[in-house]
Nucleic acid binder design. Structure first.
Lengths: 391, 391
DNA sequence: ACTAATTATTTTAGTCCCTAAAATTTTAAC
DNA sequence: GTTAAAATTTTAGGGACTAAAATAATTAGT
């Protein structure tokens, strides 16, 4: 849905405020292009709602002193919750500035129905809230991130891998169970929202986020809005084919998916095969990967060929994306590439060689380590975006 | 630039009017969701400007008869002009309904400066106008399509292959030479605009257009607006890598570009090599291709392997695009795939096999033959879009 | 021919959200 | 205290929309 001019302006103001806080109304005039009167009206509403607080500033120059505005760090808490790759629910409480105030983890029972998963989320949330000794009223919103196809406007989940297909009113189930308004989105979208609102590239409104974890996911911000495609299917970057026809088979049934070379799971599988070891069970993946990297670093084993091939293909895939889409920036989250200089070299060589010449070196690239709190920050970002947004 | 609510509503109304013409104001109320008063105001302006005309309808039912509205078929002419792949300027006059009223072609001299090219365009336009015995006042706008990097808001050209890099105020040069306001855009963007305003998928506002010609180009409509990337570089679909590292070399300097397999030029080169013939000169390409297809159809030669490989890779590239972007529709223009059933089968097999399962068969696909008038229709579409649009 | 019914369009009054500019507030410096 | 300066708020006004009343233009019935 298109935002009305009013919604657009309010969201613009909130984003500028968040990105430059603490900031006075005068600055917001310059930052947003709106006039003082409008700033007064919109900020009055935000202060009223408790989303923004005023903060007196001691002034040293003549003139009425500025009143700084900040996102309220204590009044409105958001609980962000996600399913991790290895079968846990990660629950974290943050304020609207994205600062963590507590974390809690619970194990997920295997289930086949999404409704059941929603129930487990509700239980985990209930426990976490009890553990933090919070009253329901202190919690402004709950934000859930799921590895599947979600309509973030309705909170309805269409599909999650290994579960029976939906639709399932996930948001409704959690919300009713706890009596707290709940928003739901794809988990990679949450990471992108976190970057957009709280990241170093906070000023970027046209970027692609790529998350390299056990699986590979991507999300697209364009014109300051998350886009999710005609069928709501978040960009399945990991299943674009990088070695068509003859490549490694992927669990999606295809061959030569980027995922099959470059996801942490695939790197583990390839490494284990190379070393003649058995692949670990699903919930031992993360530990196994850390172990492999340690052994590799100490020289006990050599998995350079696997890491380099993964990185090389990631570079090509990003090059293809840049060539087709010309985003302002690409943010890559995940351990393998970010960690080692040698892999960075490999990545940039592949990127440069395979990007359309006119676009080479023009796209901004950021590497970041994965950070578990990012999901909760993304939840807070989603809440802020929903203060006004139509979508 | 974001459209204001007003611009958005006016453009919405114009698009709905165009897509359903002839149409009465009452229908526009339903089509746009605006109220009658607003429709009256906006259409009054359009009629005033001569873009829309009223048309009495004899009614057979009780009640005040509806007054149909149409895009003016005769008052406002647009000249669309493009450089064809084989070194000609194609100039065509159309009305705002996209109907052709005359065509003219001129040969281009080789040049190295874009300013020189602009001069040749101006001369060709001047000749064409004289030939059609038109007065300058009859021509509403000129629309130019160029195979390069163009900022359609300013008419400034940054880059055209084989020419010295810009910037060059192409629009300004043509406009001053002829005394007629001139808009400039990338030529594939014009094809996309033509589809959006006049195509069978006219109701689609989120689609990708892929043009398979001597070269391969693409354009992206999202949310009813053409998007052109952070650096204005129209989607270089043809230079995404389909056989990375080991594929055929491409003129861009890379290897394994889709272009190197699937563009008409590459199909010719591969076919000639296979047949032990010499490749034709650049301006004989189109004729050569027609010849090859004829010989192939009659059984004199067999270029199935080349055609099938090209089609197979096109299918994979489209699958990757769909997997990453989830567009509502993909429109493919160009002779090879569209023409032969056997190739369609090949294409759909590759598409289906390489699309992320949840997206299979959900994206609408249209094949169309290339049509030279499409550029001029695109020019008319650009003019309509600029009646209100900020970009 | 006249009236009633019906439908399309236009007009009117009012609202919302913005801008521009004047007014007010609050401070430092003298 | 008074003045100058800067930040913020208030006020007046405008543009574009909506809702609803008014008007226009027709057919059908008598």
């Amino acid at each position: 849905m298109r935002l009305s001019d009013q919604e657009y302006n309010r969201l613009l103001l909130l984003k500028k405020l968040r990105a430059s806080e603490p900031v006075a109304r005068t600055d917001l005039v310059a930052l947003t292009g709106l006039t003082g009167g409008t700033i007064t009206a919109i900020t009055a509403d935000l202060v009223n709602r408790g989303i923004v607080i005023e903060e007196k500033v001691a002034s040293s120059s003549p003139g009425r002193p500025r009143v700084n505005l900040r996102i309220n760090p204590s009044g409105k808490y958001v609980i962000g919750t996600t399913a991790t790759g290895d079968g846990h629910v990660l629950t974290e409480i943050v304020n609207l500035r994205g600062e963590s105030l507590g974390v809690s983890t619970a194990k997920l029972r295997t289930a086949t129905r999404i409704e059941d998963l929603a129930g487990q989320f509700a239980a985990a949330l209930d426990n976490a809230i009890a553990g933090w000794e919070l009253r329901r009223e202190d919690i402004f919103r709950i934000g859930v991130g799921l590895p599947g196809i979600v309509d973030c406007r309705t909170g309805i989940v269409e599909q999650i891998v290994t579960y029976e297909p939906g639709p399932c009113d996930f948001g409704g189930i959690v919300s009713r169970a706890l009596g707290i308004p709940t928003l739901v989105d794809n988990n990679i979208n949450l990471l992108a929202r976190a970057e957009h609102w709280y990241g170093a590239g906070a000023h970027t409104s046209d970027f692609t986020l790529i998350n390299v974890d056990l699986a590979i996911g991507a999300a697209l911000y364009r014109g300051g809005q998350l886009i999710s495609g005609a069928h709501g299917i978040a960009s399945e970057f990991g299943h674009t084919k990088i070695v068509p026809d003859i490549g490694r088979p992927c669990f999606c049934g295809g061959r030569g998916c980027l995922q099959a070379y470059c996801s942490v799971q695939s790197i583990i599988e390839q490494s284990c095969k190379r070393l003649g070891r058995a692949s670990p069970a699903y919930d031992g993946m993360n530990a196994c990967f850390d172990g492999l990297l340690r052994e590799h670093a100490s020289g006990e084993i050599d998995i350079w060929p696997v890491l380099e091939q993964a990185t090389h293909y990631l570079g090509i895939a990003v090059a293809n994306h840049v060539t087709m889409q010309d985003p302002e920036a690409v943010i890559i989250l995940g351990p393998p590439v970010a960690k080692m200089d040698r892999l960075r070299t490999t990545f940039f060589a592949a990127l440069e060689q395979n990007t359309f010449p006119a676009l080479r070196r023009r796209t901004k690239l950021y590497f970041k380590f994965a950070d578990k709190s990012a999901y909760a920050r993304g939840a807070a970002a989603m809440v802020l975006e929903h203060v006004y947004a139509a979508s």
